[in-house]
């Protein structure tokens, strides 16, 4: 049933819903509409799946080493582009395998350990990136949130850390062991970067306290809060990193 007050749900609404462009209120109306219209709901699911498959099919290209022919911009550039391209290509092959094989998920002995490792790895890969540290930048924050929320199937919020001196750079979608994972990146005035890695934790709904682990140069605070798991990673000392983690937790639980 469509409430005439709110305007009927049109084809454009369905697509905007799929693409994460709808404001919260309208999104709820579309969901309401879909619940009552199984044929359209099926179509919307197919479109969502289509976007996902497009990414699975073509995202690997993002991280392929550049062909020799794309030379025009390499003058004056040192090792950065090629160097990172190679590093990322290697890691992403693994990521793609993870993505493709995510339905075949093998049980790991310690999910936490995996989670922390993945967060630290994603941090190490993307924070040095000058070319494309994020997929969607902070100036499209609303779109970023909608898009990642849709992909993770959970309502995400982006904490703002400007008071602590960290501005949002943007975010990206990454393949995780249990499906898509979001990474938000922050940067202070000196270029120091922090990442917040967010995954859905399936049916788990219990909260955990902050736990800390060190992976090489970086420290990781991680915790579970309702349906989402968070890992904050940075090359900060433990007290400083904890300060940021607490600020994030407080913003997400006002």
């Amino acid at each position: 049933m469509t409430d005439p007050q709110k305007g009927p749900v049109a084809e454009a609404d369905l697509h905007a819903y799929v693409d994460g462009f709808l404001p919260e209120a309208r999104r709820a109306e579309v969901e309401h509409h879909l619940a009552a219209n199984p044929h359209e709901a099926e179509r919307v699911r197919a479109y969502l799946k289509l976007n996902e498959t497009l990414h699975a099919l073509f995202d690997p290209v993002l991280d392929e080493p550049r062909p020799r022919r794309t030379r025009v911009l390499q003058r004056g550039r040192h090792r950065t582009a090629e160097h990172y391209a190679a590093v990322i290509a290697g890691l992403i092959v693994g990521g793609v395998i993870g993505w493709v094989a995510r339905d075949l998920d093998t049980k790991m002995p310690s999910q936490d350990e995996d989670f922390v490792k993945q967060a630290a790895m994603a941090h190490a890969v993307y924070t040095p990136e000058v070319r494309h540290p994020v997929e969607v930048s902070a100036n499209e924050e609303q779109h970023l949130v909608n898009w990642l929320s849709k992909r993770l199937g959970s309502d995400l919020k982006v904490p703002h850390l400007s008071q602590l001196g960290y501005d949002l750079v943007g975010g990206r979608l990454l393949p995780g062991k249990q499906g898509p994972v979001a990474q938000f990146m922050y940067q202070d005035s000196k270029g120091q970067r922090l990442t917040l890695y967010v995954r859905t934790s399936g049916e788990t709904t219990e909260e955990t306290s902050f736990r800390y682990d060190r992976q090489g140069k970086v420290g990781v605070f991680f915790w579970i809060d309702g349906p989402l798991g968070y890992a904050l990673t940075g090359e900060l000392n433990k007290p400083d990193l904890l300060r940021v983690a607490k600020a994030i937790y407080q913003q997400l639980n006002p």
Partner: peptide, 21 residues
């Protein structure tokens, strides 16, 4: 950012789109 960096930052996405297209 210099002109090379600015354009270079978009190369991966241009490549992805071109491949898909």
């Amino acid at each position: 950012m210099g002109k090379a960096e600015e354009i270079t930052a978009h190369i991966p996405r241009l490549r992805r789109y071109a491949r898909a297209l």
